[in-house]
Design a protein around this nucleic acid. Structure first.
Lengths: 240, 240
DNA sequence: TGTAATCATTGACTTGCATCAAATGCACTG
DNA sequence: CAGTGCATTTGATGCAAGTCAATGATTACA
């Protein structure tokens, strides 16, 4: 974890838009413009911490991948969530986030100051409802991951992760025609990050990726570029 | 997992009240009575499944402990949540829950039919907000548990669980004066359930409990009754 | 009061993943 | 294009937790 300087509000950026599907669905064009008045566009380089400081509660991810991590006193670390565009970021209704948010890749954000965003929530009924539904989905995902961390083997974990990326990463450079069972994507994480997400060591992750390659379940173009010729085969390995 | 017959709506029970602290805080006496009109009181014996059928979306736990479980095809099981009074139960805004709810002990519920409860949500602004905050707390807890499942040792896991019970179980027969660092409580789970919650086997759980006993961190009155003479000492073992 | 059933503990052995240590590959730089 | 640094792979070994099996302890009940 290479923590850079904390994230700070940049100058106003008129081109910044809230892109979250749920939000866009419940807001009119004019209301979105209202959001843009308080939105601040921001680039965050790989590895930099996205601060949970008091000025920013909430941010919409425009591009890149953000990891949420928790760490024990002796340094053992666990990634407890991965956020892709157009997910939201930030623990609303709390002063501090109980976890770290860190850019796993170069990230572009549309950030909102605390007071402004909570004002928006009051102004637009239905908006909080959408955020609530997002949170319920995140809770379901977290519990899905608890099953993985508690009960799956290393091989199943790696396969499950690849399936998850293949499903969620189309916004981060995944060319993937869902119908034909084929996927090609760029891993947004290093082996060390994969390990922290899967509750394994990076060596074990590496070995399992090698095994999947030898079993012709996946192909590697390079360390990060992966082809899954048959998603069903990968799904089988993933368990469930 | 001994699945009994699915849970069904009983006859109306006038003595049933919503007891959730968050709900009570935002509703008046009259509004609570409104809730009671559609509430149905229900007892569920240990081991019985609390069905996620279409008629019941939501239930307030009055007494007992409910476990939420997910299972792999080959039977490996993980408890992904434990609900104590006065928690709510049920995946709102979804037809089906992505996990099983099962009574870990004898349980008393105050249950609501789907349509009625969602009507209430619309009628009482502020209520959904409270449920949202509850869900955010549940998400934080789930992520805390991901750290445990991914990175903690068996000994740390068992100690963490006992700490969690000592904190949350005062409503289920835990005599516990938080100031004096002492706790006494009844485990609401069998060794097998503890194992399913901790991502371990029941033998490992049993051995770790024995170890904590030998190290004078805990005392056992019987298999279920536990005394923690010094919560700080237990906290140390739990890690973090 | 004996028998079964359930739940928990304990012991012996096995194994999957972690740990430790090196080697390889690749991008960048002087 | 040698040299440095980082990410990844590969190999050898150890250990924490799993598996298998037997024994205790309680409670239920015939």
């Amino acid at each position: 974890m290479t923590a850079g300087t904390p994230f700070e509000l940049p100058a106003k950026c008129d081109t910044c838009v809230v892109r979250h599907k749920s939000i866009c669905a419940v807001l009119s064009e004019d209301e979105l413009k209202d959001f843009n008045r308080i939105a601040r566009h921001r680039r965050v380089p790989t590895g930099q911490v996205i601060a949970a400081d008091s000025e920013i509660v909430f941010a919409n991810i425009l591009d890149g991948v953000v990891k949420l991590t928790k760490t024990l006193a002796d340094g053992r670390q666990q990634i407890v969530g991965l956020q892709f565009p157009p997910d939201f970021l930030g623990r609303i209704y709390a002063k501090e986030s109980p976890y770290f948010a860190e850019a796993a890749t170069d990230v572009e954000l549309c950030a909102f100051p605390k007071d402004g965003f909570e004002g928006m929530l009051r102004r637009y009924p239905g908006l909080e409802h959408r955020l609530f539904e997002n949170t319920l989905d995140e809770l379901d995902s977290a519990r899905e991951w608890m099953l993985l961390l508690g009960r799956k083997t290393a091989r199943e974990r790696v396969a499950s992760l690849l399936m998850m990326i293949a499903r969620r990463a189309p916004n981060v450079g995944c060319s993937h025609t869902p119908d034909n069972n084929f996927a090609k994507f760029t891993l947004p994480l290093t082996r060390a990050d994969l390990a922290d997400y899967l509750g394994l060591t990076l060596e074990t992750v590496s070995r399992q990726i090698t095994n999947l390659k030898k079993a012709d379940i996946i192909e590697l173009i390079d360390n990060r570029e992966i082809i899954v010729p048959n998603l069903d085969a990968l799904e089988d390995v993933a368990g469930n």
